Simulated assay, not measured.
Amino acid sequence: MRVTLADPLALIPGFEETRREQMARYPQTEPGWQPVHTVYVPADRFDATTITAWGGTALDMLRRYVRVKEVNRSSDTFSPISKALHERVTAKLDAEPVEDLRIDFEDGYGFRPGEEEDEHAVRAAEAVATMHVDGTLPRRWGLRVKSFADGDPGRSVRTLDVFLTGVVERAGQLPPGFVATFPKVLMRAYLGQFADCLKALEGGLGLEEGTLRFEMQVEAPRRSGSSTRTWSPGWAAGWPPRTSASSTTPRAAVCRRSSSGSTIPPATTPGTSCRRCSPEPGSSCPTARWPPLPSPTTGTPCRGCGSAT
């Protein structure tokens, strides 16, 4: 068998040191409990009976469409398994229909006046406190705030503040299992900024450090390349993009703004903008990093997003 690289490890001289650092920072542990699903409920449609109601609906559908007689009529090979599975699913839906709950203030909720969102955050806190007392609060629960990428982090943090303050005041504590979902993470700095807000809330609410945990949601990964579209690292750092060893012609770059992953032709005039990137004729695409030209050429693909002007 022929290979091109005689000794691949010789190309990675720092691997062992990096591996030791990894094991020290992230020691291997036995995997803990993980929910089988996460249920998102729009904040304006959530109350203290939501989980019980959803469980009741699921049980009703199970009993209506999967009858015990039909389970028992299955083949001899699968009948014992089918019967046991039916019993376990029924018991699960009766005891714990939702393992992980997110009260949604983002896509499932939309943009609303501040007073209305405040009111829904207060009502959600009241519902969570009631569920905690009644024993119906899922073992993992929390809310999904609005993304910082939407441009209004103050609204996002205020909703979280109103909600958490209300829960702690009404329940006398923060019930275990809280997790916040931080969506549409487009910039790494947003993570540190959100973590600082959580730390401030911990101090203000008298919670131990590390109590408020969050999960990040990367919903719009930027395409890194394909057989026809190549990502040039120079695109992120600024002009010029990286060039190939045998040519000084810049590689085509994938737009960092467009969700379609448009290829930007190397021959396009630098600085040409379009209505998609900028409403001002002649201004440069915000993702392009070229100076603007006084008059963009009609029909020329934009170096920033790949669409025609």
Score class of each variant (00 low, 15 high):
residue 123 R to H: 04
residue 177 G to V: 07
residue 23 M to R: 15
residue 189 A to F: 10
residue 2 R to I: 07
residue 134 D to P: 14
residue 305 C to S: 06
residue 262 S to P: 02
residue 232 S to W: 05
residue 243 T to M: 04
residue 110 G to Y: 03
residue 222 R to H: 11
residue 281 P to V: 12
residue 138 P to V: 01
residue 297 T to S: 08
residue 307 S to Q: 15
residue 119 E to M: 05
residue 272 T to H: 11
residue 86 H to T: 07
residue 77 T to C: 09
residue 73 R to V: 05
residue 89 V to Y: 11
residue 202 E to S: 12
residue 5 L to I: 14
residue 284 S to W: 04
residue 281 P to C: 15
residue 124 A to M: 03
residue 23 M to P: 01
residue 91 A to R: 12
residue 84 A to S: 11
residue 145 V to T: 13
residue 27 P to W: 13
residue 175 P to Y: 11
residue 189 A to E: 13
residue 269 T to N: 01
residue 244 S to Q: 12
residue 160 L to N: 02
residue 41 V to G: 06
residue 223 R to I: 11
residue 232 S to L: 07
residue 21 E to W: 06
residue 304 G to C: 09
residue 296 P to Y: 03
residue 200 A to L: 13
residue 208 E to S: 08
residue 116 E to G: 05
residue 32 G to T: 01
residue 263 T to Q: 10
residue 159 T to G: 12
residue 159 T to F: 02
residue 82 S to W: 13
residue 49 T to C: 06
residue 50 T to D: 13
residue 195 A to T: 08
residue 196 D to W: 02
residue 287 T to V: 08
residue 184 K to S: 07
residue 184 K to Y: 09
residue 300 T to D: 14
residue 131 M to R: 04
residue 268 T to P: 00
residue 175 P to R: 07
residue 218 V to E: 03
residue 182 F to V: 09
residue 295 S to I: 12
residue 105 F to L: 10
residue 235 W to G: 10
residue 138 P to A: 01
residue 96 E to R: 10
residue 235 W to M: 13
residue 80 P to Q: 04
residue 35 P to I: 05
residue 139 R to G: 02
residue 33 W to Q: 04
residue 306 G to Q: 06
residue 219 E to F: 04
residue 278 S to A: 15
residue 216 M to I: 15
residue 69 K to L: 05
residue 227 S to G: 11
residue 13 P to G: 00
residue 57 T to F: 12
residue 92 K to S: 07
residue 250 P to W: 00
residue 106 E to I: 10
residue 125 A to L: 00
residue 136 T to R: 05
residue 44 D to K: 14
residue 43 A to L: 13
residue 34 Q to G: 07
residue 258 S to K: 11
residue 245 A to K: 02
residue 263 T to F: 03
residue 293 L to K: 07
residue 99 E to P: 00
residue 107 D to Y: 02
residue 260 S to G: 11
residue 45 R to H: 14
residue 304 G to F: 08
residue 289 R to V: 03
residue 131 M to P: 02
residue 202 E to L: 14
residue 157 V to P: 08
residue 190 Y to H: 15
residue 56 G to F: 01
residue 139 R to T: 06
residue 140 R to M: 12
residue 67 R to A: 01
residue 21 E to G: 10
residue 212 L to G: 08
residue 161 D to L: 00
residue 94 D to W: 03
